[in-house]
């Protein structure tokens, strides 16, 4: 069955603070091992299990850091 939600992370706006990783209830976000252009480890979606709850969006201090999507009805 398809996941109810999905997330898009803007890795060049992300500062690797980790607050979204902490906030995500099913723990489907992680900090990447790679660096972005400013030397931060950007957050990334592990690729499965997002419920579309939206809390990572509110927990992220960057205006466009995270976009949360939900499965269209």
């Amino acid at each position: 069955m398809a996941d109810r939600g999905s997330v898009e992370l803007n890795s060049e706006e992300c500062k690797g603070c980790g607050l979204c990783v902490e906030a995500c209830p099913p723990k489907v976000l992680k900090l990447s091992a790679r660096f972005n252009q400013y030397g931060y480890h950007p957050a990334e979606y592990t690729g499965a299990g997002c419920t579309g709850c939206g809390i990572c969006f509110f927990a992220c201090p960057e205006p466009g850091g995270i976009t949360v999507l939900r499965l269209a009805a």
Binding site: G5, S6, F57, I66, T67, V68, L69
Partner: peptide, 13 residues
Amino acid sequence: PEYAPVHAKPHCF
């Protein structure tokens, strides 16, 4: 599956 944004960068930024 099709996904649509529900939370994105607010317009007033």
